[in-house]
């Protein structure tokens, strides 16, 4: 045989040598099962339906003919339908598992194996003393809408209340403009326009003075 012909070899997989359908056609004592052989899903399905009907007998019981007919019909139909299943060599349990997963899939996906549910925006109340000129949140909203944090649903950062001491009305990240020139070098120090911070003692004295007026 020439080398060329020997190269034309038939390539096979031998999966079927190991994986062939497992059927049940006889009882352990060697007696033939009526209507057999059955596949494992058929046997298990038929047994399951039979068991359930047996347990729920009072719900469907009637005359003897009805009882026998219904029981045999239901079990037979189950076995027949399961026999029609073409799973392509797959395990029925695996197929059911896949369908089950698809049916109960949650709306929100997992990130790195964990569910991440978006937190609702909530108000975080500040504690301690307010050390700057108070400005109402409502006034802030009227003057300059503050952009909402990006990607709240995904990352779920806590939405905090606006710092009421803020006096600037230029939103962060806005395009360069005469009011917001692009940063081309290290930021130059700017004299603070805010009142100098006061100590807690000074704050208490101020409050006391205000209450006495």
């Amino acid at each position: 045989m020439s080398a060329e012909n020997s190269a034309r070899e038939i390539i096979k997989n031998f999966t079927r040598a190991r994986k062939f359908p497992q059927l049940i056609g006889r009882t352990p004592d060697g007696k033939r099962i009526v209507g057999g052989p059955y596949t494992l899903p058929q046997a298990l399905g038929g047994a399951a339906v039979g068991g359930v009907l047996w347990l729920l007998f009072p719900l469907w019981a009637g005359g003897i003919v009805w009882n026998v007919g219904f029981f045999c019909g239901a079990v037979g139909l189950t076995v027949f339908l399961l026999g029609k299943l073409r799973l392509g060599g797959r395990s029925p349990a695996s197929v059911m598992q896949g369908i089950g997963r698809a049916l109960v899939a949650p709306e929100e996906a997992k990130i790195n194996g964990r569910s991440v549910s978006p937190r609702q925006p909530r108000l975080v109340r500040s504690g301690g003393y307010i050390t700057a000129t108070p400005t109402s949140v409502a006034a802030m909203r009227c003057d300059a809408p503050v952009p909402a944090p990006a990607n709240v649903a995904a990352a779920g950062p806590q939405m905090r209340t606006v710092d009421t001491t803020t006096t600037s009305t230029i939103p962060r990240g806005s395009h360069p403009s005469p009011l917001n020139p692009p940063l081309t070098g290290p930021p130059a120090p700017v004299p603070s326009s805010r009142p100098a911070a006061r100590s807690s003692v000074k704050e208490l004295l101020a409050l006391a003075a205000a209450s006495s007026e």
Partner: peptide, 29 residues
């Protein structure tokens, strides 16, 4: 495979043919 031959003995279908193919594949393998 032998067990399946017993289980499917007397089956009037292509079942044993399938087992024959499995047996041939097993033998070749």
């Amino acid at each position: 495979l032998n067990e399946q031959y017993e289980q499917r003995e007397g089956e009037l279908s292509t079942g044993t043919g399938m087992l024959d193919q499995a047996a041939a594949a097993l033998s070749e393998y």
